[in-house]
Amino acid sequence: MTLSGALAQQAEACTALGSPFMGRMLPLLAKVWPAGSALDAAVQAFEGDLGPSGHSLPLRLASGLHALVLTGQDAGMIAAYPPNDVSDEVLKTVLTSALSQHEAFLIQWITSPPQTNEVRRSAVLIAGAHALVKRTGATQVHLSELGASAGLNLMFDQYALTAGDTRLGRENAALTLAPDWSGPAPVTAPFTVTDRRGVDLNPLDPHNTDHALRLRAYLWADQAHRVALTDAAIRVNNAQVDRSDAVDWLEGRLAGAPQGLMHLIYHTVAWQYFPPERQATGTALIEAAGAQATSKTPLAWLRMEADGAARGAAVTARLWPGDHHIALGRADFHGRWVDWTDDPT
């Protein structure tokens, strides 16, 4: 796929995910792209798919440009970016200037893969955890997140969820998620998190200025509500995310899991990035641990992952003892809507 094609494909995806600015800016970026420049050479050095299913160069470039705005490095870009509204010609002019003046910054920026921590995905983690606790009667939960990034979704028990007339979470929650909810209301089953830990190949520390910039830069400039949620999550974050291969880490995490509580393993839009052989090994590890689970020490595997369907991600779970396969519902990849189907009553 050419860079122009990748930018067009990403623009379509961003528009579908509620960002008209990204849908407009990325095709304009293709029109002013500096062919033959050092930045162009850096992009062309990537082998394979440049688009959303591969290296995601459009998102890397867009986040680098957004970082220039967030750090105040380019006055022209600041004036042209939301909440300001300018013509396509003005936007093309400032993009052309930024690509030239900040070439070295952008070349360095795109060397790292995209990394976000979409807090709104915690809506299905909150509802899913309550559903699994309801089934097991567990009151204490041990959390293990795969592909945890900065660990913001490791703190989901500190957030609240409103789904119609139902509210889950503490009154003094750090933030409240309110996706468009359809289907039965989520069940309420209070629990306490006794331990939380995650793993990522390249974990970010949200309290590190450079890392926090990367988190915010990958949020789209016309979606200020996502920035507000991320900032609120960062303020209460104290989760630890280890740097490791997720499956290797999981093997040790399973071996050291305490007795007498529910171990909840989960991931959101991360499993698809694991190589097939790692997926197979990870599945085997979880199934082997599940075979040893008891009613007093249940094991749950909660997933929000793409399944090839045209709309959103599947929210599913497996629960031991018994290896129950549970279809909980579907959700927008950014958590804007949830179509819940679980009704254990």
Rank of each mutant, 00 (worst) to 15 (best):
A212K: 10
L219E: 08
N208Q: 13
N237M: 01
T209C: 05
W220V: 07
H225I: 14
A228Y: 12
W220Q: 06
T230C: 13
H207Y: 03
L229V: 12
D242Q: 08
A224I: 13
L215N: 04
R226C: 09
T209A: 14
A228K: 15
V236Q: 09
L219I: 12
H207N: 06
N238A: 02
D242P: 05
A239F: 00
V227I: 13
W220E: 04
D200N: 08
L219V: 13
R226A: 08
L215Q: 05
H207W: 01
W220L: 10
P203D: 01
A233D: 03
D242V: 05
L215T: 04
T230A: 08
V227Y: 03
T230M: 13
A221Y: 00
L219K: 09
L215S: 03
D210R: 12
N208P: 10
A221T: 07
R226S: 07
L204D: 04
D231M: 06
L201I: 14
Q223Y: 11
A232L: 13
L204M: 12
I234D: 00
L204V: 07
P203Q: 01
Y218E: 04
A224H: 13
H225S: 15
N208F: 03
Q240W: 09
N202V: 14
V241K: 01
A221I: 03
I234F: 02
